[in-house]
Computed example of a mutant assay.
Amino acid sequence: MMIANLHSPILSPAEYLAWEAEQDTKHEYENGKIIAMTGGTIPHSQISANLAALLIPHLRGKGCKVAISDAKVTTPSGKYYYPDLIVTCDDRDRFARDFLQYPTIIVEVLSPATEARDRGIKQQHYMLIETLQTYILITPDRPRIEIYQRRSDLAWEYLSIAIEPTDLEDKNTTNDPLIQITSLDLTFPISVLYENINFPSEPNDL
């Protein structure tokens, strides 16, 4: 998603939630300010859909929810964000309507407009959520996925997997590394995540 700062007075969380419920578009909330969310690219949306298509059947019957882009998550520091994908398996989120509080996984698909925040302030505050076990960053214009997996209250393990776009375009390639999301006991090849994605000739040629 793209972002745009709105010139607005400082709002309390309750005021933000009441205000946003009446809006036609989505807005994040950070430090008392609202941030408008605008549309992303087709590859951005396709990657979220591909991952959801993997997760939903895998988690069926396990008491987990998979939400894409339209679901807010709140952090212990009082921020409200719209991740590209959220998985929550916590009973406390079972009847949530306005926002989720206890995610197991948060995924952000990167874009030039959001990458700094996804790697910076948003990542910092996501990792304050005690139930969060995995934070994933996905690059849409080349095959790359970065995974942060919680090992303790303060320690996270980082893994980056990247291949050349030509490896995915070659149907006979043997370079199709497996992605492991240990918190969900899920393993899948990176090619499935990028199914139906056509890569630009230059990494930044979106």
Rank of each mutant, 00 (worst) to 15 (best):
E146N: 13
Q101A: 13
Y135K: 10
V107Y: 06
Y81W: 07
A71Y: 14
S111F: 02
E115K: 12
V66S: 05
T104S: 13
T41G: 07
A49C: 03
M127V: 00
A116Q: 14
M127I: 03
T104V: 14
R92Y: 03
H58T: 08
I47L: 12
Q123G: 14
R144V: 13
Q46H: 06
I42Q: 08
R117K: 14
V87L: 06
G32A: 12
I68G: 07
T104W: 08
A113G: 13
G78E: 00
T88Y: 00
R142W: 15
L51P: 06
I35S: 10
E30Q: 08
A113D: 15
K65V: 11
D141R: 09
A67D: 11
I138Y: 10
C89W: 01
D93S: 01
A52T: 08
I147N: 12
Q123N: 12
R97D: 12
Q101R: 13
K33E: 13
R92W: 06
R144C: 15
R119N: 06
T75C: 09
T131S: 13
Y29C: 11
R97C: 09
H58P: 04
Y148D: 15
Y126I: 04
R60M: 04
R97P: 04
S69E: 10
G40W: 09
E30T: 11
H58M: 00
T134M: 04
M37Q: 11
D98T: 15
I129S: 02
R144E: 15
G32N: 14
I105V: 15
E115Y: 03
T88S: 08
I138F: 01
K72E: 10
L132N: 02
R94P: 01
K72W: 02
A53T: 05
A71R: 14
M127L: 09
G120S: 00
L59Q: 01
I129G: 02
D141K: 06
T41Y: 09
I145T: 12
V66W: 05
H44N: 05
S111R: 05
I136A: 02
P83K: 04
K33N: 15
F95C: 14
I56K: 12
V66E: 06
L54R: 07
A52G: 13
K62R: 13
R144W: 09
I145A: 12
Q133Y: 00
R142P: 08
Q133L: 03
D70E: 15
Y80W: 07
T38I: 09
I129E: 02
P143G: 07
I121T: 14
L85M: 03
A96F: 04
L51E: 06
R94N: 07
T41C: 07
P140L: 06
Q124K: 09
R119D: 04
I121K: 12
I68R: 11
D70G: 08
Y126E: 01
T139H: 15
A113T: 09
A67Y: 14
A36D: 05
R117W: 12
E146D: 13
I68W: 10
P140C: 11
C64A: 00
D141G: 03
D91Q: 10
G120A: 07
V109T: 04
I129H: 01
S69V: 08
G120N: 01
K79N: 12
P103T: 11
N50K: 09
G32F: 10
I145K: 15
H125D: 15
Q133F: 05
